[in-house]
Amino acid sequence: MNESLELKLSALVASIMGGAYIAYAIYMRPDGGSDLGHALGIIGTLLMLMTEFFYSARKRISWLGWAGPLRWWLSVHIFTGLVGPFMVLLHSAFRFNGEAGWTMLLTALVVGSGFLGRYLYTAIPHSLAGAEATADELMINADKIQSSLSSVAAKRSAAVQVLIEADAKRKRRQRGDLLLVLLRSWDEWLYTRNLHNQIRDLEKTEKRRLSDIESLLTRRRNLERQIRSMEAARRMLSLWHIAHVPMGMALFGSAAIHVVATIYFKAGLWRLLW
């Protein structure tokens, strides 16, 4: 599955709803207390509840394995976790007064924290089924890549072998655990760009494609980084949970009070119920 599919889908749905909101705002006055605005709030809140409950349940309850791979549920979790808050934002009509404003602020914090959590989560290698890889598994994979690299390099020119050797002995950036995990995308981009330039230059003199070498070197470098930062990423993810979970629960507490208040004041769609 395309790892960013849920992000693209979320962006698409949010764009459509945003466009509809703008069109509505041109001709009408958006209001959280109107039937449409209230419906947005209710559906958005339900999506946020799904975000919290379904993925966690699938992750923790082993006999829910029949419900599909954990990776799918993470995608649903991310989709509902983005679209739900966006609907709540539209429900607020961009007015952040009182307790409802606090709830919206908490929502924004939890969503932002969710993005960070996903970034940390992706620093830890997972199997296709979503299970975390162990250090031993990573080492075995690194050995396999190294042997593949050796066997491919043996059939190539001296210049290619020099490149592979130089890559193995390249100077690694000295970073602490925090920066190692947080700046991994930046480091990866720098490495990939540098390697790509070297490979392209070498291809000109070798007069043959070296994409297989480039791919193997990139995979070797990623595995090195994962082995090096996995423990740090796990620790940070645990710390993140300590912050994210209370914020999420505070959000649900605040949202629950918001719902009770609208029932108390019989605002929005509740007035249709009695």
């Binding site: 307790e99 606090w102 300590i242 979970v245 209370p246 914020m247 999420g248 629960m249 505070a250 649900f252 507490g253 605040s254 629950a256 009070i257």
Partner: peptide, 13 residues
């Protein structure tokens, strides 16, 4: 921790 925070948030409100 999560439930405690939620209760705290409700209490503050």
């Amino acid at each position: 921790l999560g439930c405690g925070t939620a209760i705290l948030a409700v209490a503050v409100i």
